[in-house]
Amino acid sequence: MTDDTSLRAPLVIEYPFTRTTGPVVGAFLTALREGFVVGTRASDGRVLVPPAEFDPVTNTPLTEVVEVGSEGVITSWTWVTEPVPAPQRPAGEEPPWDPSVDAQPFDRPFAWVLVRLDGADTSLLTVADVEDPAQLHTGLRVRIRWRAEREGSIRDIEAVEPVVSGEDLP
């Protein structure tokens, strides 16, 4: 039950953090800004995308940065029927950050997808922008749609879209 006489006040938990990305994640984000994707080559020869900074087997720093393709195949996906909107701010308060960061990528239904880009041995989590889940299936060939204004963020990848003229790989 709500007691109308009780005191109320907004409590917005927010805190400005920055990140020191280091040589590997820094290279990944810089590449996104330039409109391509890189991974790192692990000690067992696999190309890890997104890149790992340390080898999961030998624990040594991974230093070989490898460019991979902007096309690949969906290895798994899930459909989001009702996207979560950006949180509403208390009246009169200005958000200190880009509100779009708090929202899901689209305000229309979309899919979260894992995509194994050409040349990579692991899958990257991103977004598929299609109208109907019937357009998606595991193995579907997709291509990155880059944001026009890129800033070195994972959101520089606006979405992936089906490759219309290409063939679907199993």
Partner: peptide, 10 residues
């Protein structure tokens, strides 16, 4: 500024 958290602890 030269290292990530992972790089620092490593």
């Amino acid at each position: 500024g030269d290292v990530s958290i992972a790089g620092l602890v490593h």
